[in-house]
Each structure stands twice: as structure tokens, then as C-alpha cells.
């Protein structure tokens, strides 16, 4: 066992390797934004109450503000910067653009990362509070709202966010069936 208060740490983010010399108090969100210049993930509250900091760790969506960077040195971290690029958008990013799923855009990176993680949960058959039958959840707009409730939007772009996610889900099912 190794005990420490600061020092060199190593991270895998968006498929790239990063080294950082940081205090153990540093949250994963502050590592990304303040130390590595990956400012796509946003800080809305720093208390787990808004979802603006949502990222994917080993494929699962989490709030980057409520975890310590030092605890994630062996993980695969994906942020909005790693989902797609301007020239090659992730299908969820493209759906948000097409449906205008934002106004100011501050919550958007968190919404998109959360939606990607959420559709993976749906594909694994995970139920939600909105599922009448927990063993066989049916995906509909109520499910989208419930499953995305951890992402607040102060501009209240919710209707278009739901449209974007519904379409990205339908497209992912189609491409699965085609494959």
C-alpha cells in the first residue's frame, strides 16, 4: 500500500496518455479542466446536483465532480472531446445539432456524455424508475426523461434534448439491425 498527499499520476483519457503532478484532493473534473486543458466537461455545481460534469469512465456515466482523480489512474476515461470531432461528430452530437438540443450550450457536453452512457444502459436491459415492468423496460419518452433526470438544463431545452436522444436511439437500433 502506498500512502501519499501529492505526486505524479498517470491517466488514460480519450485514448491518450497524460501525466500530471497533482494534489490528491484534485477532483477528476478539476484534473480535466484545470490541469489538462480539457474544458469540455463543465462545472455547474460541484455537488453532484446538475450533471454538467458527466463523463464516461470504463463506459459508465459518472459525475466527475464527485470523485478524486487519484482513484481513476487505471481507468479508461472518455470526455466530450473524445466522443467525436467537428469533422466527425458522434451520432449523439449530430442528433443534438440537428434537433437544436441546447440554447446556451453549458449543460450540453454533460447531456451528450450522459445520453451515450444511458443508451448503453438501455441496451443492457437496465430498468428505470419509469419502467412498469422492471424485467422488460419499454423505451419511450418518459423513460428518456427519467433516465436523463441527472442532467439539468437551465435553458430548459428539454423537449429538443428528448427529440435528439429519441432519434439517436432509433438510429443505433437501425444500424445494429443492419449489421
Amino acid at each position: 500500500m502506498l500512502s501519499r498527499t501529492e505526486g505524479a499520476m498517470h491517466f488514460t483519457i480519450n485514448g491518450m496518455q497524460y501525466d500530471a503532478d497533482i494534489d490528491v484532493r484534485t477532483s477528476l473534473l478539476d484534473l480535466l479542466r484545470e490541469h489538462l486543458g480539457l474544458a469540455g466537461s463543465k462545472k455547474g455545481c460541484d455537488h453532484g446536483q446538475c450533471g454538467a460534469c458527466t463523463i464516461l469512465v470504463n463506459g459508465r456515466r459518472i459525475n466527475a465532480c464527485l470523485t478524486l482523480a487519484v482513484m481513476h489512474q487505471d481507468d479508461e476515461i472518455v470526455t466530450i472531446e473524445g466522443l467525436g470531432t467537428i469533422d466527425d461528430l458522434h451520432p449523439m452530437q449530430a442528433a443534438f445539432v440537428q434537433h437544436d438540443g441546447y440554447q446556451c450550450g453549458y449543460c450540453t457536453p454533460g447531456q451528450i456524455c450522459s445520453a451515450v452512457g444511458m443508451l448503453d444502459e438501455v441496451a443492457r436491459g437496465w430498468p428505470s424508475h419509469a419502467s412498469a415492468d422492471l424485467a422488460r423496460p419499454i423505451f419511450d419518452d418518459d423513460e428518456i426523461s427519467e433516465r436523463m433526470s441527472g442532467n439539468l438544463c437551465r435553458c430548459s431545452a428539454y423537449p429538443n434534448i428528448v427529440d435528439a436522444i429519441r432519434e439517436a436511439h432509433a438510429a443505433s437500433i437501425e444500424s445494429e439491425q443492419a449489421a
Binding site: G51, N63, L66, G117, E121, H129, R147, G150
Partner: peptide
């Protein structure tokens, strides 16, 4: 133990429950 699944799903958010 459906009551346990239901209670968990009624708590926090998808992101928080993952952690």
C-alpha cells in the same frame, strides 16, 4: 426483491447510481 430495485431506482440519478 422487487422492492429493493424500485427503491434504488427511485434514488439519486443514473450517474450517481453508477458510482
Amino acid at each position: 426483491y422487487e422492492v429493493l430495485s424500485r427503491a434504488l431506482l427511485a434514488g439519486a440519478s443514473g450517474q450517481l447510481r453508477n458510482k
